[in-house]
Amino acid sequence: MDNNWLLRVRNLTKIYGEPTLDSIHRTGPAFNTNICPKTGAVVAVNDISFDVYPGEVLGIVGESGSGKSTLVQMLYFDQEVSAGEVNFKPVDDGNVNLFELSNQKKRYIRNHLMGMVYQNPRDGLNFRFSSGGNIAEKLLMANVFHVGRIRIRGADLLTKTEVPIKRMDESPARFSGGMQQRVQIAKAIANNPPMLLLDEVTSGLDVSVQAKVLDLIRGLQQDLGVSMIVVSHDLGVIRMLTDRTMVLKHGKIVEQGLTDQILQDPQHGYTQLLVSSLL
C-alpha cells in the first residue's frame, strides 16, 4: 500500500536569502511569518513532505505568498531547491532523488515525463511561435521529429482542447486569455506525461471561460488518467478538480485531508477562516 506512490516529496525547502537554523524553526504559521528573525531570509517552502498516487489529483491551497507556486516550480526544476528530496516512479523506479540528477537528465524529465501549466500563458508559451509551433517545440524536445506526425498530433491536441485548428498557425499572442490557456494545456500534455502540474490556471479568466478550462482539465484527467497537482487559491476550483487537498500557510502544511473533508470539516483555524470566507 505505502509503496504505491508516483511522486514522493520529502522535506522540501526553499529559502531566499541567508538561511540559519532559525529560518526553519522560527518561521511558519505558529510564528505567523515566513521571514527569518535573524537574517530576514524568506522561507517560501518550509520542510514539506507528501505523496502523489497514480491517477490522483492533489490540490494545494493557500493565500498569496504561502509558497504554493514555489513548491510546484521546484518540482518542475524552474527553481533551485534549498533542501529536500523528490522521487518519481518513472525515473529509476523511484530510487533516485531527482534534484541530484544532471541538468541533462532533469531536462529529459521535463520534456518527457512532466507537464506544467503556468498562471501566465507567457511563461509556458513562446509568443514568437505559432500555437502549432509551440506544441511542435514540446514534441521535438520529446524526440518526435517527423514533421507530418507533429502536425497531426498538434491538430489533434488543439481539437481536444477546443482551439480552432484553422488558427493553428497564428501566434497565441492574438488569442484570448482562455484560448491561450488551452493552448498551454495542449502543449503540456503533448508528450503524454504521467504527471501534470497546474499553477493557478484559471485565475484571471472570467467565469464562463474558467468553467470551460476546468471542464477540459477534468476531462483530460478522466481520459488519460494523469496525476495532477493543482495549485489554486480558489476553493471552488479545488472542490471541482481534486481528491485530496493540502492547505499551506507561511510555507508549511497546516492541514491535509480529503477535499470534501477540508471544505466541510476544516480542523485548523486558518482553514476554517478560508472556508468561511467563501462567497
Partner: peptide, 9 residues
C-alpha cells in the same frame, strides 16, 4: 452520515 463517509472527521 458524513462521519461514515469521512466528509467529517
Amino acid at each position: 452520515m458524513k462521519c461514515i463517509y469521512r466528509t467529517y472527521l
